[in-house]
Write a protein that binds this DNA or RNA. Structure first.
Lengths: 195, 195
DNA sequence: ATTTTACAGACGACCGGTCATCTAAAGAAA
DNA sequence: TTTCTTTAGATGACCGGTCGTCTGTAAAAT
């Protein structure tokens, strides 16, 4: 990784942390460069606009998550359904500490979907990636017989991931683990019910 | 309702519509007063700050929702579980057209929970109100025997409402009904499973 | 006449974005 | 090796515009 790429990465990392807690419109370019200890003028050397920064940040956070999940969701030595449960319990910590900041993708989705089409499309793509990862594990579980639900893996994955995002969101407001507990209580019932 | 209260209400209504699509930080005082056709200087006659406006808007939107739901969730001539299903299918339209804007409370939750404690607390309260309404119907269904889940109504209500908010959020990004369909597909399974 | 409310305009701060200038390393010419 | 030229990247001052809020006055209400 070149020096240039390192600096851009640093800008992305530092800015992401600010934008994840203050939102897109609540974060100024100055906030971002200050957090990265980079002069303001340099920002536009690396990003063509604030919007562009957000899109790249969205990509980065998802890329990191996917890399993290590859070990978790793709680990064949653990039963698929247990892997899925771990995916949720592990990400509560990994997703910007869960209770503070919440899920960056979810935040951007709510704040920007109706304001920026570029961001909306990127968010949609990132959400799809996550849903697909869940669907893959569910399909695996179906093949080994541990998933008996008559509902298709695609629908199940869509529902579960959306419910999960809603859970993260609720935790932002409530600042407690109750929503997480409710989710984890229902999860086995949803996966294991009906023949 | 006095003339003053009417004007304030109008300001709240018009501003809400803007803030629901553009977010808190994406909406200026000018946007609000322009939408309501009220001179800019008048804003601070009715609200002590922008933050105060948001809190009052949050209260208003929930108050309206509750009034709307009182007919729906409290209507004893319809079986409780069917009332609950209707609550979701009806609110998809009522909740700012669902696909555009999404749920105002959810939007504010994601954008502002970490920036304004006043707004966070109001959001939490409003979310609790909604959850409680669902819990009440579930409890009713349990008493009449139509709800057999061994999971407590409180946990069930918490999960369902969060899943619902996640569904609304996803629809903002995807602009399609797939998330809603997934939710409605899983709903009976969650309510009706296990003995 | 006195108090209260409505509002135009102004306030300084800050916004996202631009730009002329500076720096420093690489290459060419000597 | 030394000097000069070129150039990509770095940078802080600065742009027009907008932000949330306040103040002074006019209008209205009592």
């Amino acid at each position: 990784m070149s020096k240039r790429e390192l600096k851009k990465d640093h800008l992305l990392d530092a800015g992401l942390q600010v934008m994840a807690t203050q939102g897109y419109n609540g974060t100024s370019i100055k906030d971002i460069v200050d957090a990265a200890n980079v002069p303001k003028g340099s920002f536009y050397t690396y990003f063509k606009s604030k919007e562009d920064f957000a899109v790249e940040a969205l990509e980065k956070v998802t890329e990191e998550r996917i890399q993290h999940n590859r070990h978790l969701l793709g680990n064949r030595s653990v039963p698929p359904l247990e892997r899925l449960t771990r995916f949720f319990t592990d990400n509560i910590g990994g997703c910007e500490q869960g209770i503070k900041g919440g899920c960056f993708i979810g935040n951007m989705c709510q704040e920007m979907s109706d304001s920026s089409e570029v961001i909306r499309l990127k968010v949609r793509q990132m959400l799809r990636n996550n849903t697909q990862a869940i669907e893959d594990v569910l399909e695996e579980a179906r093949l080994d017989g541990s998933l008996k639900s008559p509902i298709s893996s695609a629908v199940l994955a869509e529902f579960l991931f959306n419910a999960w995002e809603g859970t993260l969101m609720r935790m932002k407001a409530s600042k407690c683990r109750e929503p997480l507990n409710a989710f984890l209580t229902l999860l086995p019932a949803i996966l294991g019910n009906q023949s």
